[in-house]
């Protein structure tokens, strides 16, 4: 550890001096300073982005575990989280633009360094949000792919669908509860796979009521109905993912304009000074040129004046 904290020593020195000088006196309490609205807002947004990132992480975990267990798909939770994250990102984006607007409005009153301080904060927040949004987009992309893959596989497995499936609509409400579940669940109605919690009740009723009463027709209709329901739900999932991607695209556009301004990121710390030096020199050169101009025109003025005087003298003496 190449650092030695000497704060304690400093405080000790301060105490010692204070006692020596004016006797014991309570130090003026620092007090919680009133932070500017900007700082508070920026801090809030920062914390929100952080929270969103945590949600995103959870979502990633879900999506990854999902790709391992092809048929036990926590679709519900993923969809919910996706929705939440989407809303988060959209609202954060709105908040950020608001913050930026407030910053621009306040720019007149703030000092130059204050202004660049706040714009740097906004930039950083935007960059962070953009990172999160990018992660989110990547996640949605893979999610879309895996959903499509599952769909393909399912289509292959469910290819010999009996024609009776047309009348599946009348098969009863219990069949509908199967919609988002896998084919194996349908094939073994004893409920071996754990049903999604929201549909637990309906499923339980079904399993108790008619589990052992299958005949061939019911089997077929159930198969077909659940398959088509499943398909439609999957199509729906793909569509929603796609629409989310499109929405994200617009957010990207807004964010990237700002991030594009970060070209200076690769600059070195000591470059600013060089620039300042260069501009100082340029200014000096301009001044010198101006001085030369001035002095040459002064010479001219002197000469013109001399000629004038000459004429005045001549006119004065001869006329």
């Amino acid at each position: 550890m190449p650092a030695v904290d000497r704060t304690a020593e400093f405080r000790e020195v301060v105490e010692l001096r204070r006692r020596r000088q004016q006797g014991p006196r309570t130090p003026r309490p620092a007090g919680p300073k009133k932070r500017s609205d900007f700082a508070a807002a920026a801090s809030g947004i920062g914390a929100d982005i952080h929270a969103t990132a945590a949600k995103l992480e959870r979502l990633t975990q879900l999506a990854q575990s999902n790709s391992l267990l092809l048929f036990a798909d926590p679709t519900e939770e993923i969809n919910q989280l996706t929705l939440i994250v989407k809303q988060d990102i959209a609202s954060l984006n709105a908040k950020l633009s608001e913050l930026q607007r407030a910053m621009r409005d306040g720019r007149g009153s703030a000092s130059r360094q204050q202004a660049s301080h706040s714009s740097s904060i906004v930039e950083q927040l935007k960059a962070r949000l953009l990172d999160s949004a990018k992660d989110f987009q990547g996640l949605l992309q893979t999610r879309k792919e895996s959903v499509q893959m599952m769909q393909d596989r399912r289509q292959k497995l469910a290819a010999p669908t009996p024609p009776q499936c047309r009348c599946a609509d009348g098969a009863g409400a219990s069949a509908e509860s199967h919609a988002p579940r896998s084919i194996f669940e349908c094939g073994s109605p004893l409920g071996m796979a754990t049903p999604p919690s929201s549909m637990g009740a309906a499923n339980g009723a079904h399993a108790g009521g008619g589990a052992f009463a299958f005949d061939a027709f019911e089997w077929g209709s159930r198969w077909g109905s659940s398959s088509s329901k499943y398909l439609s739900s999957r199509t729906h999932a793909v569509e929603s993912v796609q629409s989310t991607i499109v929405e994200l695209g617009s957010i990207f556009e807004q964010l990237s304009t700002l991030v594009a301004e970060q070209g200076e990121m690769a600059r070195r710390v000591d470059e600013n000074v060089d620039d300042a030096l260069a501009s100082t020199q340029a200014g000096y050169e301009q001044l010198q040129r101006y001085w030369r101009n001035l002095s040459s025109s002064r010479g001219l003025a002197v000469r013109v004046l001399a000629v004038l005087m000459f004429f005045i003298v001549i006119f004065g003496t001869f006329f």
Binding site: K33, R35, S36, A39, S111, R112, Q113, Q114, S116, H117, S118, S120, I121, E123, Q124, Q262, E264, M265, A266, R267, R268, V269, V273
Partner: peptide, 28 residues
């Protein structure tokens, strides 16, 4: 060691020379 971008990533919004003219930023 650190470019401006690296400093930003570490939360440094401004980097200033001690002797340069510096303005008040009261809440940082």
């Amino acid at each position: 060691l650190l470019k401006v971008g690296d400093l930003r990533k570490r939360g440094v919004t401004l980097h200033l020379l001690l002797d340069a003219e510096r303005e008040q930023i009261a809440d940082v």
